[in-house]
Design a protein around this nucleic acid. Sequence first.
DNA 1: CGGAATCCGAAAGGATACTG
DNA 2: CAGTATCCTTTCGGATTCCG
Lengths: 139, 139
Amino acid sequence: MDARISFADRLKTMQGDQPLDACPVRQVMQGIFGKWSTLLLQALGERPYRFGELRRLVPDISQRMLTQTLRDLERDGYVYRKVLPSKPPRVEYGLTALGASMLGPLTDLVVWASDNFAAVDAARRRFDADEAAGASGSG
Amino acid sequence: MDARISFADRLKTMQGDQPLDACPVRQVMQGIFGKWSTLLLQALGERPYRFGELRRLVPDISQRMLTQTLRDLERDGYVYRKVLPSKPPRVEYGLTALGASMLGPLTDLVVWASDNFAAVDAARRRFDADEAAGASGSG
DNA sequence: CGGAATCCGAAAGGATACTG
DNA sequence: CAGTATCCTTTCGGATTCCG
């Protein structure tokens, strides 16, 4: 697919029959961009993990959000959930083929963020400093 | 940079001195993944737009969120804001070099979403159907 | 034309307690 | 171990009103 066709044209096409809110691309993006989705997808990109392993790997996630995020990812088809029939119940989560194919582009973006967060942080500080100066400069 | 180094290792490194919550990558990602950020970045990737043009281009955004999202994008250094000194004030928004460099990976992800939303949608319906069946199956 | 300020409802997300 | 259910706080985002 051509990645560089006119975005505005695509936008207009989408508005033709749907309220822009129903834009399928946005629906998909929203599923990927939750607070924890990206993190968990990256983790599962390495190897399958069990529920408790993920908790320990990402210590500041609440068990509520871990459950919910994994469910959402499973619902969207990125993640499978396999219940191992052992005495203490074990549940393994891993990427599906769909999830693996999405992880490529997602990781590229994560890598960009990793490479450029210093520039972003600098921009933020500049912006905040300018704002503060403008707000109190004449006081 | 090596895009495929161990994510778990990187995670552990980050936890070493920071609360994971302060992870810079996450900070950056959160800025990109707002409800409107991706959409506006794509639009500005075509050419600079004025405030009112963006409103018409994305009709279902409120003026409040358009202002706020543009401000956030400007703060992060992705977008510049140029006030034209004309009689009715005109303000032009466009991508900075940083924003343009980020748009590449972001667009790749949008393209993925565009190519695969049917699969995601199918997965969702399957999941929901299974859930409904499981919930009412045994009476 | 491009905003800022305020108000309010909806949704995301965390803490805690309980279950199989 | 792997959840579910409830409560509560915070954030997101829309509608409206006012300003340079």
